[in-house]
């Protein structure tokens, strides 16, 4: 009995990880209002949430791939490719938006499907396979733009990237909407049960009549589609075609999911932790900018703080 209660406590603490993160975020916000008096406003938080939304949406996809025991490094390049083809496809004209959207959707589907085929049918390790798609897509982007992409986004896409609904940025609304949807799917549906089972014990899932391959393929395609959505939002926000837009989305989305309490080995984790994880990453970046820390210093501080957060979570988890 003693054994049980101890283990149960440990089990509950695992789901506590998002709460620890929330507490850390609140402490950070408090610290900011003390360090830079008057800087803390609702609008500032909303702006950070808009900046976090692209990473946040990507991290949702990444979280599902991690959940089924995989990893997706190609999300950043998917963003870049969608950005470039969205701008060239739409030619800054609203009339070409539907065709451009279809093109982007097609790109996302192809990347996701390619990852799925490589991982499932060629048995390539997810890390390597998605790294390959990354490199190939990067190459395509360089060749296609000849190294110098030009153009700007269609007004509709711009509106999505910059507009607000009752003061809340559209991109934030889309992000949280997708998060709520994913949460409902994972929490309440058979699909969610199956995804957790496949990640938690693939052999057990298979022997229970679950089709692992379909689910894993679906996870990679979902991740690519989330990256596509993020790419469209970023295109609207930045209004340029750029070869540097991929940023560090692959690594940062992984970090967001893991900080949020999702297990890298699969089978465990939720949605809200990932949402908080993404917000945390952006908040950290914004605060370091506000404190006037140089780009180089930012990287060092960012790394150290993420390390500290994860260390705290591990310590609290232990007993």
């Amino acid at each position: 009995m003693r054994h049980n209660s101890l283990l149960q406590r440990a089990g509950r603490l695992h789901s506590l990880q998002p709460l620890i993160l929330l507490a850390i975020i609140l402490v950070m916000i408090l610290a900011q209002s003390i360090l830079v008096p008057g800087s803390l406003t609702l609008d500032q938080l909303l702006i950070i949430s808009r900046q976090a939304s692209a990473l946040g949406i990507i991290a949702l996809g990444q979280a599902v791939v991690i959940l089924v025991g995989g990893i997706d490094l190609s999300v950043g390049t998917t963003v870049m490719m969608v950005n470039i083809f969205c701008i060239t496809g739409m030619q800054a004209s609203n009339s070409r938006v539907p065709a451009g959207l279809l093109l982007c959707l097609g790109i996302g589907l192809m990347i996701g499907a390619a990852n799925a085929v490589g991982v499932l049918f060629l048995n390539i390790a997810p890390f390597v396979m998605t790294l390959c798609t990354t490199t190939i897509c990067q190459g395509i982007c360089y060749v296609y733009t000849q190294g110098a992409p030009t153009g700007s986004a269609a007004p509709f896409i711009r509106a999505v990237g910059t507009g607000r609904l009752l003061g809340v940025p559209y991109s934030t609304v889309i992000w949280l909407g997708l998060a709520a949807l994913l949460w409902a799917v994972l929490r309440f549906t058979t699909l969610g049960r199956k995804l957790y089972a496949v990640g938690g014990n693939p052999k057990a899932a298979r022997l229970s009549g679950i089709s692992n391959r379909k689910l894993i393929a679906g996870a990679y395609i979902f991740s690519a589609l989330m990256a596509t959505a993020a790419g469209l939002i970023l295109t609207g926000y930045h209004n340029i075609a750029s070869l540097t837009l991929e940023g560090d989305y692959a690594m940062n989305s992984l970090a967001a999911a893991l900080i949020g309490g999702n297990a890298i080995e699969g089978g465990r984790g939720g949605v809200w932790g990932v949402v908080l994880g993404s917000f945390f990453m952006m908040l950290l970046m914004a605060m370091l900018t506000m404190l006037g820390i140089s780009q180089v210093g930012k990287l060092i501080t960012q790394g150290c703080i993420i390390l500290a957060v994860v260390a705290v979570q591990q310590l609290l988890k232990r007993d």
Binding site: T190, N201, A205, R206, G209
Partner: peptide
């Protein structure tokens, strides 16, 4: 352990894994 249970899941979720439909 190897191919029966999903260890990190509850009795309930393990029990209904083959009857989700």
């Amino acid at each position: 352990r190897g191919e029966g249970l999903v260890p990190h899941q509850s009795i309930r979720k393990n029990g209904s894994l083959a009857t989700l439909e």
